[in-house]
Design a protein around this nucleic acid. Sequence first.
DNA 1: GCTACCATACTTGTATGGTAGCATGGAATA
DNA 2: TATTCCATGCTACCATACAAGTATGGTAGC
Lengths: 225, 225
Amino acid sequence: MATDSRYPPLAAGALVYSTLKEQIVSLALPPGTSLSEKETALLFQVSRTPVRESFVRLAQEGLVVVLPQRGTRVSLIDPELVEEARFMREQLERAVIRLACKQFPPELLPPLEENLEAQRVCIRDHNSKQMFKLDEEFHRLLFAGCRKLGTWTVIQQMNAHLNRSRILWLANDPDWSKLFEHHRAMLAAIRAGDADHAELLMKEHLRLAILDVAMLKEAHPSYFV
Amino acid sequence: MATDSRYPPLAAGALVYSTLKEQIVSLALPPGTSLSEKETALLFQVSRTPVRESFVRLAQEGLVVVLPQRGTRVSLIDPELVEEARFMREQLERAVIRLACKQFPPELLPPLEENLEAQRVCIRDHNSKQMFKLDEEFHRLLFAGCRKLGTWTVIQQMNAHLNRSRILWLANDPDWSKLFEHHRAMLAAIRAGDADHAELLMKEHLRLAILDVAMLKEAHPSYFV
DNA sequence: GCTACCATACTTGTATGGTAGCATGGAATA
DNA sequence: TATTCCATGCTACCATACAAGTATGGTAGC
């Protein structure tokens, strides 16, 4: 469980780790990019030791692949793992939103509302990166409300592949309004306590993420396995 | 995703990591045990570097807690995370066994049969540790058959707390025959393709793991948060 | 021209010395 | 006697040096 906030080894190592992770997930460091320990150490102005520590953590999350004596690379996106992550999210989120319909702390409803409003702004401004973050935050809040944040954290580990695909997808096919409407309807269902409807919405919502990976792979062949 | 077999940093570090993990999950290293880098390095006859690497990995899985400048300890069992892990498994395994009823590769049925037979032997011999491993293997085979091994791997990360509780529980209340009967019935349902029945069985099966954590905590107060 | 070999420049893996922060216990003080 | 302060020894953290394996380019031989 990589709860960053709970095991903060301090400064240097943690900083390198979180920076690299951010860049990898956002595709600023595209899949396949070579990362040498020495080079990265020079870049961050630290020694190889904390860099190595961060590489170990990233490898454990499947974000990089370490080939002994050969090099370290940003992992390629595995289409099978993309679908598997989506499958996993569907099962867990359907269960969670059912819970949310029965017991959701009222003090977390305003944050969800604010999030929705921010999504609306993002759609207007065509800000796909921010929209992605808000989407993540919306779902995270659902888990938080059901006291299942540990589950969300574990999901994140698997999401390395799915998220990178989704970023590519969101950049190409900006059908954000459908996502937004889903979110809006889900929140309404939670307020109404309609678990069956909420689950159905979540199911449809996450099936939108059954991306046409083949299409993405065609557009970015070097990014995939 | 900590697929040990896929990112093997080689010998020393990986050996320390897997050995410590084994000992922690089996409670040979009880929750709360202090682990110093230097001490562990001496024990394994390696330098502190690979030990440190293994500590980082174990911390990421929640098996140890690193307190900067203070020490490293085997993590205490968090009852909330125990239930959360069980919840997560229930959702995923119910979905997986439904899949298994529709598409399970026939060549994986014999291994399941052999596993069941081994379970019978374990029950006869009152071998709780082996029984625990066989139970894990049984469920892993289900995921393997549905091509969802990545999901199983991620589950394992969350299982650190649940598994340790289950080991305590299995040692106390050896109602293994019920587990065995569940496994047997599940396999029969898969053969028959009866998804509804299989899911119901799995649901009941995993609800057995709603352990009386309070009881365990009373028996081993120092092991829990 | 083609192939096999080898020197070299990389890579990650490991060992070790030094640094900063924290806990503990004893001594000095009120 | 109770309390504060400080020295000491512990810890993890980081930097550096060395070891070992790998890819590559040039060269000698065929």
